[in-house]
């Protein structure tokens, strides 16, 4: 990250690789939506056998480094915000693992459970007691799901939005801007994180516009359907973007999957979609 974070420690920032993965997912999504109506798409089942002999991920087109830099920057924003709030934390660097959220969503439970144990052992090895997460999916895994599959799991997991709110961070700059808020389904309905982003944005002077479906009744960005049904995912993203644009043009998201999906549906709607950390770092960052 280039931020001189100590390796490991009792409290670590756990990215779960969600932000870092988005540029790759963009390439994969482009490829799957191309294949969806193509005759080759009908032969994709062969891939499962073929992949045992040839690593098919070699054929995925490479992502744009500009996007990679942009998504990495959101993580840097979060580090700056936590430092401004005087939170001490480490990072596992190359030893940090993905939590396996998608594998679980797809119902491949025993593979997920094996992976979760591997992640837990890694955290234990470094003596981690608390993790600060940056996205809703990783937060749900490390707060709610791991304890269901690993009986001895007792690591405390909080989103950086919760940590910032608890710390009572004071803004240094007034945002003075209207924003339309898009809640993540997982933050709002799985984790009850609804007030935290609103509190932080309001305290920084932003005026929040709520779409018809918001808070606990937020509407999905379509992202979870992206890997299997890209055209359906795009249709839902378009519908959601329409609801958001009705309230204003600066849309703020708090999940990298929402950001990616809504942004891909924002074209031609005159709207800009941005991660909440980008707003918060302007107001509170150092």
């Amino acid at each position: 990250m280039g931020l001189d974070l100590p390796k490991g420690g009792e409290t670590v920032l756990y990215t779960g690789h969600m932000y870092q993965m988005i540029p790759t997912l963009m390439s994969v999504a482009k490829m799957t939506s191309m294949l969806e109506d193509h005759w080759l798409g009908k032969s994709l089942f062969i891939g499962r056998t073929l992949n045992k002999f040839i690593n098919l991920s070699w054929f995925i087109p490479r992502f744009h480094s500009k996007e990679q830099k942009r998504y990495d920057e959101y993580l840097r924003n979060i580090v700056r915000l936590l430092r401004a709030a005087d939170v001490g934390f480490g990072y596992l660097y190359e030893e940090e693992l993905y939590t396996g959220a998608l594998v679980r969503d797809l119902g491949v439970d025993d593979v997920f459970e094996g992976h979760a144990r591997k992640v837990y052992e890694r955290l234990e090895k470094h003596g981690v007691k608390r993790v600060i997460t940056v996205d809703p999916h990783t937060t749900d895994m490390l707060r709610n799901i791991y304890q269901q599959v690993i009986p001895e799991y007792s690591i405390e997991a909080k989103s950086y939005l919760e940590v910032l709110r608890e710390r009572g961070l004071e803004p240094k700059t007034d945002l003075d801007s209207p924003v339309v808020i898009h809640d993540s389904c997982v933050y709002a309905r799985y984790l009850d994180v609804v007030d935290e982003p609103r509190h932080l944005l309001k305290k920084a002077g932003a005026t929040i516009h709520e779409p018809e479906y918001s808070g606990k009744m937020t509407y999905c960005c379509g992202g979870p359907a992206e890997s299997l049904f890209p055209s359906k995912a795009h249709e839902i993203a378009g519908k959601r973007m329409g609801q958001l644009v009705d309230m204003g043009h600066d849309v703020v998201t708090m999940c990298p999957i929402c950001l990616f999906n809504l942004e891909s549906a924002a074209e031609g709607k005159g709207a800009a979609v941005e991660d909440i950390s980008e707003y918060l770092v302007k107001a509170y960052g150092i």
Binding site: C185, R189, M217, T218, Y219, G222, L228, F229, K232
Partner: peptide, 12 residues
């Protein structure tokens, strides 16, 4: 079954 978004809007 695999199309469900697991968004839980229905559960609300």
């Amino acid at each position: 079954i695999f199309s469900c978004l697991l968004c839980r809007l229905c559960e609300e």
